[in-house]
């Protein structure tokens, strides 16, 4: 696409690759602080999750209020697979992704045809259905106590237990997904997605199969969220039904809104930054949810393009016109 070629991205490119490298070397700096490394791993999962939601919301404009449902579903499927079949990631994780992709495709067939508001309501309801499922199947899932006793998983036969190994594994998945998402943005599919987001009616009359494109984004988004959930569950050794709660969905939405809907990189930064901030702020104050909800409201009112949106305004002033982000 000409637009990609024309974008003055050189300084951004360099900045991007430097940050990727810094991220990869982080465990060496944190060797003596296992707690921070653990938190960093969580931040990476949050970033992956945020990216997965932005694949849907940023590309097609569909807003999901139940994204944690896919995360939790992926977590439970991977956890059950590791516990009752075999704790091999090359077996369990693809299986998780396939099952979730099929579920997302079947529900998506109905959901993505609805208007945006109905879609939003249905995503919330669907995540509650997954939540209910955990309790209906509590003989296997452990119900309210969560699924516990998941064995230490292997990756191609190698046992993965060291925190640094986990960090790199999670980091690799994040960077690979981010590169994939950025690549997709440049393909005809990615451009057609933006067209659907920008003007769905016109897209249809241009001959773009709007429903199918929305469905592809929906399935992709759910599958990546499930992968993040599966990885985190294996990393954590347990998964609780709380991963599917609407508060958790609110968190994911916050990462994306905070980072800037549709920027792909913004939500990744938002997810990571927010996880750290939440950890430190919630240990300081009891009223975490008030600040969280308040911040949510303030950002929607005053900075609807997120922090990345604000940053890109300054960037444009510095480096001339850029089209890093499609207007909402």
């Amino acid at each position: 696409m000409p637009l990609v070629v024309r974008r003055p991205v050189r300084p951004l490119h360099i900045l991007g690759w430097v940050s990727v490298l810094v991220g990869a070397l982080l465990p060496f700096a944190l060797g003596s602080q296992p707690f921070v490394l653990q938190l960093a791993s969580q931040a990476i999962v949050a970033a992956t999750l945020a990216l997965s939601l932005d694949l849907l919301t940023g590309n097609t404009g569909l807003l999901s209020f139940g994204h944690a449902g896919w995360y939790g579903l992926g977590g439970y499927i991977a956890g059950l697979g590791a516990k009752f079949v075999a704790p091999e990631m090359f077996l369990v994780l693809p299986l998780t992704m396939i099952v979730v992709a099929v579920v997302a495709w079947l529900t998506g067939l109905i959901l993505v045809r609805q208007i945006g508001k109905t879609f939003a309501i249905l995503t919330l309801a669907l995540s509650q259905i997954f939540y209910s499922l955990i309790f209906v199947a509590s003989a296997w899932t452990g119900g309210e106590d969560g699924l516990q006793g998941i064995p230490v998983p292997t990756l191609a036969g190698l046992s993965i237990a060291a925190p640094t190994a986990w960090y790199w594994l999670l980091y690799f998945v994040l960077i690979a997904s981010l590169l994939l998402a950025l690549y997709l943005r440049r393909t005809p599919l990615g451009q057609a997605w933006l067209a659907v987001k920008s003007n769905p009616e016109r897209s249809l009359f241009v001959g773009i199969p709007v429903v199918r494109l929305k469905l592809i984004a929906y399935v992709l988004s759910a599958t990546l969220a499930a992968l993040a959930g599966g990885l985190f569950t294996l990393f954590n050794g347990a998964v609780s039904p709380d991963t599917m709660s609407w508060l958790e969905s609110g968190n994911i939405l916050m990462y994306v809104v905070l980072g800037g809907v549709g920027t792909l990189i913004g939500p990744v930064i938002g997810g990571a930054a927010f996880t750290f901030a939440a950890q430190y702020i919630s240990s300081l104050t009891d009223a975490w949810l008030i600040y969280f909800g308040g911040l949510f409201v303030v950002i929607v009112i005053f900075a609807p393009d997120g922090l990345f949106g604000l940053a890109s305004v300054f960037w444009r002033r510095l480096f001339g016109p850029s089209r890093g982000q499609v207007a909402r």
């Binding site: 609110g250 009223a287 008030i290 909800g293 409201v297």
Partner: peptide
């Protein structure tokens, strides 16, 4: 998004 944020705030 806004009413969702309000839900979080009120719950908090």
């Amino acid at each position: 998004l806004l009413t969702f944020g309000l839900a979080l705030l009120i719950t908090g």
